[in-house]
């Protein structure tokens, strides 16, 4: 079995900051906007190097989304930065009308998504954002898994013409994807080959899926782990091919089971290849204060939870 190791942990938001800084040097049309969270979004490098291409909007996210839409008229590629909660639910109608329906080339970059925001608690821990964004016609939804992939995704979406929701997070997580790996929107990445069960994971849960696959291997269970960094458009083919081999699937995400990756996968499988599926996701609930590790444990979003889900789904084959 292919195994993954890491030498360094870093937050995915820093991957965004690094990607944005690189875009600042390579693409003169890229502009950045922020609603009073420069430090949290790691946007300083871009701003220091390109002050004329940065717009500090203040605490006014609705205005930020509209301004971003307007900046595209004149050929700019705006990247908006704020927390995931304020990037989606707070400004849903602005995104819907001024960006998605209007077909504007805006990149909505959202940090501190999910429970791993930690101690700030449920007001800030959005677990519904993937659902909100994937329902918008034409919106691309991306949730990369580590620093390198977030950096690569940030750079890649500048070359895609259309609205994108890029979701990343606050905590330091293992860096295990290659720094030079090209990011292809909508193309799933198979991390391990397996025959007993398919595990498709997104975001922070990808590393947990790899940890789970290691433990399962020791228990004699062969798991195929797939990194679904793009939830929409979903790589239907990769999922169908894998379950054709394994016959069951576990989906894993830091998001509500309603509206998330799991539901997207279930839709594809129900239509093309009905397959037993278990969901590692939050169960229609808000989060709460705590450390990221405590929260991921309490709400069942870690390697242990994935292993349990695998054992459950294997019995349903």
């Amino acid at each position: 079995m292919k195994t993954y190791t890491y030498t360094e942990k870093k937050d995915t938001r820093s991957g965004f900051g690094a990607g944005l800084a690189e875009l600042g040097r390579t693409n003169p049309n890229v502009v950045a906007l922020c609603a009073d969270l420069i430090g949290s979004l790691k946007m300083n490098e871009f701003i220091d190097e390109n002050p004329e291409r940065f717009y500090q909007i203040g605490i006014a996210e609705a205005n930020m989304m509209g301004i971003a839409a307007g900046l595209t008229i004149g050929g700019k590629i705006p990247f908006t930065g704020t927390f995931a909660n304020f990037s989606t639910g707070r400004v849903y109608d602005q995104i819907r009308q001024s960006i998605a329906y209007s077909g504007k080339n805006v990149k909505i970059c959202a940090s501190h998504a999910g429970l791993t925001l930690g101690e700030d608690g449920a007001t800030h821990q959005i677990l519904e954002d993937i659902g909100l964004m994937k329902m918008l016609p034409g919106m691309v939804v991306i949730n990369p898994c580590d620093y390198n992939q977030t950096k690569a995704a940030t750079i890649a979406i500048a070359d895609y013409d259309g609205p994108v929701y890029l979701r990343f997070g606050r905590p330091s997580v293992p860096i295990f994807t290659p720094a030079d790996q090209k990011f292809e929107i909508g193309k799933a990445i198979q991390l391990t080959e397996g025959t007993d069960v398919t595990i498709v994971a997104t975001g922070h849960l990808v590393w947990e899926a790899l940890e789970a696959s290691k433990a399962l291997h020791e228990a004699g269970i062969s798991a195929e782990v797939i990194n679904i960094h793009t939830i929409k458009p979903l790589d239907d083919k990769a999922i169908i091919e894998s379950v054709s081999k394994t016959g069951c699937i576990v989906t894993a995400e830091e998001h509500n089971h309603l509206g998330g990756l799991g539901e997207s996968v279930a839709r594809v499988l129900a239509q093309h290849k009905p397959t037993p599926q278990e969901f590692v996701a939050t169960n229609d609930t808000f989060g709460e204060s705590g450390t990221p590790a405590q929260l991921m444990d309490k709400y069942g979003l870690n390697s242990d939870a994935i292993q349990n889900a695998v054992k459950k789904v294997l019995k349903r084959k």
Binding site: R53, A62, G66, I67, L71, K76
Partner: peptide, 15 residues
């Protein structure tokens, strides 16, 4: 929503 959009377009013109 229109004034925000107009502002963005106006700032793009300046840029």
């Amino acid at each position: 929503q229109g004034m925000s959009v107009a502002l963005g377009a106006a700032q793009a013109k300046k840029l």
